[in-house]
């Protein structure tokens, strides 16, 4: 992609991932609140249903994209020192990738 379309791509990615995150979170929080308190067995069973596992993996992926674009915008707007900026962007990227891999591992292990 050329630099010219890069901004538009991020803009679109931020909105698409935002819509997915919103739908997933509203659905997940509503189901949890509606169910009330969970035993471990119920909680585990709810999360490892194939549809829920895949939707949660999608949530993680959307979170990585959304968090990256959002944090990058904030850092580029407020941090002007080039070294500090690069360091923060690196930390954000590493944290997101680490959390993403960790969450995928958790989901795979839970699905057993």
């Amino acid at each position: 992609m050329s630099g010219h379309t890069h901004g538009l791509r991020s803009w679109l990615l931020q909105r698409l991932s935002g819509v997915y995150l919103a739908i997933y979170l509203v659905y997940a929080i509503a189901s949890v609140l509606q169910h009330g308190s969970y035993s471990y067995t119920e909680w585990h069973a709810w999360l490892v249903q194939p549809v829920m596992s895949i939707a949660t993996a999608g949530f993680i992926l959307a979170m990585l994209a959304h968090g990256w674009v959002g944090m990058r915008d904030v850092i580029l707007d407020y941090v002007h020192h080039l070294g500090v900026r690069l360091m923060l962007l690196t930390l954000v990227g590493l944290m997101l990738v680490a959390c993403g891999l960790w969450a995928v591992r958790v989901l795979l292990l839970a699905a057993g």
Binding site: W43, M63, G67, M95, L96, C99, W102, A103, V106, A110
Partner: peptide, 14 residues
């Protein structure tokens, strides 16, 4: 986000 993943991890470890 990391705390959320941590909680998810713990909550699914039996």
């Amino acid at each position: 986000f990391p705390f959320l993943v941590w909680l998810l991890d713990l909550s699914l470890q039996g």
